[in-house]
């Protein structure tokens, strides 16, 4: 946090001169945002906790009586192979996409940071475009690319001679999850590039010049200067992107709908299907949502600790 830690004393003195006090003014100014925070996030979060410990499905919603069931919803989840599979696939999805985002992010950031290469100016201008594409559109456009009759992936690979006939890509349960990772990484890597690029620009060029005078080669300079100074940003991207990757929904929705079979069921998809499709097992869905939220919160906690230590460059 870079905010100052004390209200300056002149403000305190003014409190007595008829002007509204700093404390009251701060309360008034934050009140609307706080109300929204309570109404749209805090209250529903508690409500969901209530639902997680009650039996809530279409039947109970009709009768209006929600019996308390203790940990039964959580126990049901632990015995539900589809839920465990969804969690497992979420972990694979998160690990793979975050790893790719960081590797590609650092690579592309280094590339666009090159001043001597003229075309990198164009890359710099275009790099943010995938981030601007709505996630649901991203899903649809890639399912068009993957299409088995005329999709451009088939066209490209066939023309290159890699495949002998058109392939039903998303129909293959061994490939489906990876086929969702690609679009997701395509859309989210620009954000990582952005942060890494900002961090690279903050590295003083004197460091490189001094290293060059000392006879350090390109690889050596990267290992000894760039990488260590990039490390705090890698950590931030790692944690931030991990928490968001756990919530992946739109691309799954558009490209595979969880299929084929259960091959691309992820945590958010499981919660959505359980809660909003017949038989509307809202209690179980809420319990699953809490498990997901707790996993993400453990990582968020790490992030807050990280910010506390204050990220500095140079």
């Amino acid at each position: 946090m870079t905010v100052a830690t004390d209200v300056n004393s002149a403000d305190r003195a003014r409190g007595g001169r008829g002007e509204i006090g700093a404390g009251r003014l701060a309360a008034l100014m934050t009140a609307p945002a706080a109300v929204f925070l309570l109404a749209i996030v805090a209250y529903p979060l508690l409500f969901a906790l209530y639902l997680a410990f009650h039996q809530v499905s279409a039947r109970e919603l009709r009768s209006g009586e929600l019996p308390f069931v203790g940990w039964a919803n959580f126990l049901a989840l632990m015995n539900d192979a589809v839920f465990l599979l969804s969690l497992q696939q979420t972990l694979v999805f998160v690990a793979l996409s975050v790893l790719l985002e960081i590797v590609l992010g650092v690579g592309i950031a280094l590339l666009i940071n090159e001043q001597g290469v003229r075309i990198s100016a164009l890359t710099r201008v275009l790099i943010l475009l995938p981030w601007a594409v709505p996630p649901i559109v991203n899903g649809l456009l890639w399912s068009f690319i993957y299409n088995s009759k005329y999709g451009y992936l088939n066209v490209l690979l066939y023309n290159l001679g890699v495949i002998g006939e058109f392939v039903q890509w998303t129909g293959n349960p061994d490939l489906a999850l990876y086929l969702v990772v690609i679009p997701y990484v395509w859309r989210t890597t620009p954000f990582a590039v952005l942060l890494f690029h900002a961090a690279l620009q903050a590295i003083p060029s004197e460091l490189y010049e001094a290293a060059e005078v000392d006879g350090a080669g390109t690889w050596h300079r990267f290992l000894r200067i760039t990488l260590p100074l990039l490390a705090p940003t890698v950590l931030v991207v790692l944690v931030l992107r991990t928490t968001f990757a756990f919530m992946v929904f739109d691309e799954i929705f558009a490209i595979t709908g969880g299929g084929p079979g259960n091959a691309t069921w992820t945590a958010a998809w499981y919660i959505y299907r359980t809660s909003f499709q017949p038989p509307f097992e809202i209690g179980v869905g809420a319990a699953a949502a809490y498990i997901l939220a707790l996993i993400i919160f453990a990582i968020a906690y790490l992030y807050i600790r990280l910010l506390h230590r204050k990220v500095e460059y140079g």
Partner: peptide, 23 residues
């Protein structure tokens, strides 16, 4: 106000799907 900022940061990490049924 510091607590408020942490509440803001934390709420960004809440998966929207958790809130949808209550909302």
């Amino acid at each position: 106000t510091h607590a408020f900022m942490y509440a803001n940061l934390t709420s960004r990490m809440v998966p929207i799907i958790v809130l949808m049924v209550p909302l």
